[in-house]
């Protein structure tokens, strides 16, 4: 509990530097956010003239990538105290894009600009959730199946494999990010990505193996066997490739890797829970082993289909 809170604070502190939208609110506008579907709410640092604040001609709003297209305002309603205004638009806003609001002649300031965007933390969290549930690597992207069916027979194995895998994938994906952005892109060596990524994965596995052997032999005894299997897992190479495809930044890559690892752990755990029960069940002899495992996995995949389209932020 305590650990997770510390981690949360650390993450918040890290990402604050990435939030120009919140810091850069000029002096007049102290806070800005999306309201309902077609609404932006601005809060002012000081009380402003309500008559002026209610005039829609004082506002210009546009999406960051289309600065020439103004969004059509329907009304601007200041609150009673004159410290906030709600801007309503003719059409629903696309909240995925950053909106820029410019206010003229208000509160003694000639021009004030504010950037309205969804919170970056929320976006990062949505990447995590997406990799974990909505686009679960095993059940909706069908990756890492060989290892998945091999290690999902017992719960302890599943947990061990999942944890080792998450560790390796986070380490190798972050390294891949550095390599990709500082070596491959600047020298136009994109076509080497497969070789470089698989090399980094092998390197990480080897490093974890060596370190674990020296530092914690007990842990190595229980987890070491899974390390070899990690290399043969498609997920571990798919994550860097997706990172390269989507041009994710460092934090996004980290979240994607964490989500992928967590999703794999989740899938393994779910599957092993069923497998343990299945050992007691009477299964037709032709279905024993892999066939029934595939059918169970198919049912999980159908269940996970229900997550698709889930939007949290």
């Amino acid at each position: 509990m305590n650990l997770s809170r510390i981690r949360l604070i650390a993450i918040v502190a890290l990402f604050c530097s990435f939030l120009p939208g919140l810091v850069h609110g000029a002096d007049l506008i102290s806070q800005q956010s999306f309201g309902e579907k077609n609404e932006i709410v601005l809060k002012f640092a000081a009380e402003v003239d309500k008559l002026k604040a209610g005039n829609i001609n004082n506002y210009t709003v546009f999406e960051e990538q289309d600065p020439d297209i103004r969004l059509e305002l329907v009304s601007a309603t200041p609150n009673y105290a004159g410290t906030a205004v709600s801007l309503r638009f003719k059409e629903p806003l696309n909240t995925a894009h950053t909106h820029i609001v410019t206010v003229k002649n208000l509160g003694g300031v000639e021009k004030a600009t504010a950037t309205v965007s969804q919170s970056y933390l929320g976006y990062l969290f949505s990447i995590l959730i997406s990799a974990l549930l909505i686009n679960n690597f095993v059940f909706t992207k069908y990756l890492g199946l060989c290892v998945f069916f091999g290690t999902s027979k017992r719960k302890t194995t599943a947990k061990g494999m999942g944890v080792v895998f998450t560790l390796v994938i986070v380490a190798s994906a972050t390294m891949s990010w550095f390599f990709f952005n500082f070596i491959l892109i600047p020298y136009n060596l994109n076509f080497l990505e497969i070789v470089v990524f698989i090399g980094l994965v092998s390197l990480t596995v080897q490093a974890v193996d060596t370190i674990l052997r020296k530092v914690n032999p007990i842990l190595f005894n229980s987890f070491g066997v899974y390390l070899v299997l990690v290399i043969a897992n498609c997920v571990i190479i798919a994550v860097p490739l997706m990172m390269a495809n989507n041009k994710y930044n460092f934090y996004e890559t980290f979240m994607l890797a964490l989500g992928a690892g967590g999703g794999f752990l989740l899938a393994l755990y779910l599957m092993s829970s069923v497998s343990e029960r299945m050992q007691l069940a009477r299964i037709p002899p032709t279905f024993k082993g892999l066939p029934i495992a595939f059918i169970v996995a198919g049912q999980f995949a159908m269940a996970f289909l229900g997550f698709s389209g889930l939007k949290i932020f």
């Binding site: 892999l290 198919g298 159908m302």
Partner: peptide, 20 residues
């Protein structure tokens, strides 16, 4: 997409059946 699992599972079972 999820039907892939079922098809592969059922086909494996089918091949097992033939073998048996």
């Amino acid at each position: 997409p999820c039907a892939g699992f079922f098809v592969v599972g059922l086909m494996m079972a089918f091949f097992n059946y033939i073998e048996v």
